[in-house]
């Protein structure tokens, strides 16, 4: 009897010891054997295709999230679709994506012309180009597939994602991103010119 109790106690102590050691990473854990292994991409090189010079003052960035859905009719076949009398029915295929990204707005100084800048002693007058949307981006990490039923081609999914980007840009415009970017750009340039030694600064957007 005593021997059995001792054996049981030893098993309990060993089990506890295993859990403690595995908790601190000293012993390996068995884990869930049916867990799907994540698919990882290979580390391939990055190739530079083109280098461009920019002169963009990014003065406002809007962070946003949009939901976009696409729906289409899809013909489903019962049995062989090549048969003489194929049985088919039409069902709705649907994809709903959530996209998170940014809209950047500001001024492109490449549009600044010689006549836009007038200087006399410590006074400067500058006519800033109008603020524009400089970049709208929803990167792959920003997309989440909420639902996907039926078959969607790569082109159809890309088109839906482009709609999400357009929608995000429209929403940014509705938030007056351009007027905010113009105002902020003016403040940034004015501060820069003041630091550069100008006393009287007139900036017209």
């Amino acid at each position: 009897m005593k021997k059995t109790v001792n054996s049981l106690l030893l098993i309990v102590v060993l089990v506890m010891l295993y859990f403690i050691l595995s908790h601190f990473g000293i012993l390996p854990t068995f884990g869930n054997p049916f867990r799907t292994k994540p698919v990882t991409i290979d580390n391939t090189p990055i190739l530079i295709e083109e280098m461009r010079e920019l002169r963009n003052l990014v003065s406002v960035t809007i962070y946003d999230e949009v939901v976009i859905a696409s729906e289409k009719d899809e013909k489903q076949y019962i049995g062989n679709p090549m048969s003489v009398l194929p049985l088919s029915y039409t069902s709705k295929a649907r994809i709903v994506l959530v996209g998170r990204g940014t809209v950047m707005a500001g001024v492109n100084f490449f549009e600044l012309k010689e006549a836009d800048c007038f200087v006399k002693d410590d006074s400067v007058s500058l006519h800033l180009p109008p603020a524009t949307i400089l970049e709208t981006s929803i990167n792959p990490s920003g997309f989440e597939t909420f639902t996907e039923t039926g078959h969607w081609t790569e082109a159809e999914v890309t088109s839906t994602k482009q709609q999400a980007k357009q929608q995000m840009e429209q929403r940014a415009l509705a938030q007056n991103i351009l007027s905010k970017a113009t105002l902020k750009s003016k403040q940034v340039v004015e501060r820069f010119l003041r630091l550069a030694g100008f006393k009287k600064i007139v900036i017209t957007p």
Partner: peptide, 27 residues
């Protein structure tokens, strides 16, 4: 859709260089 955007940030970034890059994704 919500009416409001998630966030708006005022910045002073002067972007001066852009690289167009390509990459192969292999899995």
């Amino acid at each position: 859709q919500r009416n409001q955007v998630l966030g708006l940030r005022q910045m002073s970034d002067l972007a001066t260089a852009e690289y167009i890059i390509t990459k192969i994704i292999r899995a």
